[in-house]
Amino acid sequence: MTAPGGAPDALVVDFAGEEFVVAPGDTFTVGREGDLAIDDNLFLHRHFLVIEKVEGLWLLSNVGSRLSATVTDSGGRVQAWLAPGARLPLVFAATSVVFSAGPTTYDLTLRLSAPAFRETPRVDEADGQSTIGEIPLTPSQRLMILALAEPVLRRDGTGRSELPTSAQAAERLGWTLTRFNRKLDNVCDKLDRSGVPGLRGGVRSFATNRRARLVEHAVSTRLVTREDLDLLDEEQPSGDDVVHADL
Rank of each mutant, 00 (worst) to 15 (best):
G157S: 05
D39Q: 10
T2L: 10
A80E: 08
S161F: 08
S74Y: 08
G64Y: 14
A149N: 02
A147W: 08
R142K: 15
A7D: 12
S194L: 14
A23H: 11
A212I: 03
A83M: 14
D192K: 08
D240Y: 13
S166W: 01
Q168W: 03
S74R: 14
L60M: 07
R142G: 09
G17M: 06
S74E: 13
S238V: 10
A69L: 06
G6P: 03
T109A: 09
I135Q: 15
A218G: 03
A212G: 13
G174H: 12
L67S: 10
V21L: 14
G85Y: 13
R155H: 14
P164D: 06
A86S: 12
L90V: 02
S166P: 02
L36T: 01
N181S: 09
R87G: 01
Q79A: 11
G6F: 04
V30Y: 08
A149C: 04
P237E: 11
T208E: 12
R154E: 14
T176Q: 08
E19Q: 15
R118M: 12
L173Y: 11
A170R: 05
L229T: 01
M1V: 10
L88I: 02
P237Q: 10
E18H: 15
L110P: 01
D14W: 00
R122Y: 09
R154Q: 13
A147I: 06
S205D: 11
L146V: 02
E52H: 15
L112D: 04
P237V: 08
G174A: 09
T208S: 12
I51S: 03
N181W: 11
N62I: 09
F20D: 01
L44E: 11
A93Q: 13
L11T: 00
F15W: 12
L59I: 09
S140D: 13
G159Q: 03
T70Y: 07
R172K: 12
V243R: 13
R193T: 06
I135K: 06
K190C: 04
I51L: 15
L232I: 03
E125V: 00
L36E: 03
L60E: 03
M144K: 02
R118Q: 12
L88F: 13
V215W: 01
G76N: 06
P103N: 12
T104C: 09
H47S: 14
N186M: 08
G5Q: 05
Q129A: 11
F92H: 11
V203K: 15
E162M: 15
F28P: 06
E119I: 07
A3P: 00
F15V: 02
D26K: 05
A147H: 07
E55H: 08
R179T: 06
K53A: 07
T29F: 06
A169F: 04
T165C: 05
Q141F: 01
T120W: 14
T109R: 15
R172V: 01
W81D: 08
G64F: 13
E234T: 06
P139R: 08
A149H: 04
I51V: 09
W175D: 05
G56R: 04
A23D: 10
A37N: 07
D14F: 01
